[in-house]
Design a protein around this nucleic acid. Sequence first.
DNA 1: TCATCTAGACGCAACGTCTCGTATTGTAGA
DNA 2: TCTACAATACGAGACGTTGCGTCTAGATGA
Lengths: 192, 192
Amino acid sequence: MSEQRRGAPRSEAARIAILEATARLVRERGYEQLSMEGVAAAAHVGKQTIYRWWGSKSELVAESMLDGFLMPGGEEPPNTGDLRADLAAWLREIFVFVESPDNELMLRSLVSAATVSREIGARLHEQLGAGSALTRRIDDAAATGEIRSGLLGQDVGELLIGAVVLRVLTREPTGPDLPGRLVRSILGDAPS
Amino acid sequence: MSEQRRGAPRSEAARIAILEATARLVRERGYEQLSMEGVAAAAHVGKQTIYRWWGSKSELVAESMLDGFLMPGGEEPPNTGDLRADLAAWLREIFVFVESPDNELMLRSLVSAATVSREIGARLHEQLGAGSALTRRIDDAAATGEIRSGLLGQDVGELLIGAVVLRVLTREPTGPDLPGRLVRSILGDAPS
DNA sequence: TCATCTAGACGCAACGTCTCGTATTGTAGA
DNA sequence: TCTACAATACGAGACGTTGCGTCTAGATGA
């Protein structure tokens, strides 16, 4: 069944070099300033080699992210038994990451790419949505009565992550108490 | 004090034509495909007239939005006395608007522009943030005890609007019950 | 008089396609 | 087994096109 292809196989070295160069240039200059010519030059690769495998800038940025060259792996929230504190700590970490000048350009580039490519949007949702550790953690808490029942982990996750994305867009500075406020806005205070 | 300027004043006709052409082209082709040359041609305007008043594509798209050529004015949530129902209805309207194929390109263009221009981000926050009717409505409800105290209108608004923005990015279809679920995720069920 | 207007020329950067010559693989014939 | 040859990928870069942002020209209007 598996018809053998002829000719030279795809060069893994070129693929890696292109994705790494893309990640580096996105971090340095951002999405709009990223050019295919720049990537080709930085990766010491012919332009055709890029266009052969990726159709557009957004696809390229997408794969660079999905393969972990751009974004670190999804951090899981800690688990100390106190869901509210855990979520607030997790959010605080994320806000620190988001507000770091080193990551600003990269994150906005990711959002830009998502506005252009349906695929990135889908992967974004996949990586953040149902099935993540965050979602399960909240569902468990609802089942054990730590938080009020009726709460869906997926919905709570969307609200929290949405707030983070909104901050990326508005560039409003976050105060140290924002994570706690947001978590309590949803889950309320712990039962005494 | 008011020094009289000499020479011809700025042409309001040209300004309107440019902003309208920008809005039309953004709706038709999206942010990335929008070109300054295209706007100049469509508005029957010299390129210099655009560059004289706007410094970049993102600024142009920003003003086109802020002046109402792109976005409809901020809709206020209805007020029937039942905050949960009002917010759900308001969210439902927004999701319908967001998911309309006519508005998809425009909204993603707005997000793109916000990733590029700090000003748009700030205006976005200004238009959606504290001081809006939504925020006041929630603060009032917290004061009268319709919802639990300790909730800040600004935080709740950020969570809800963030969820909308996230949907714009992930392009996940929304179910008819999502607005109600999101509102109840935050406010809980009405006290019986 | 002076700032604005439309129109378009200008040099430059990047686009996406195409063509080289070379390297690397599978297939087929000697 | 050894040797052509076909197929494909590669780096490099030429090519025409598009859009960039600046600049000049001549007309218009306060």
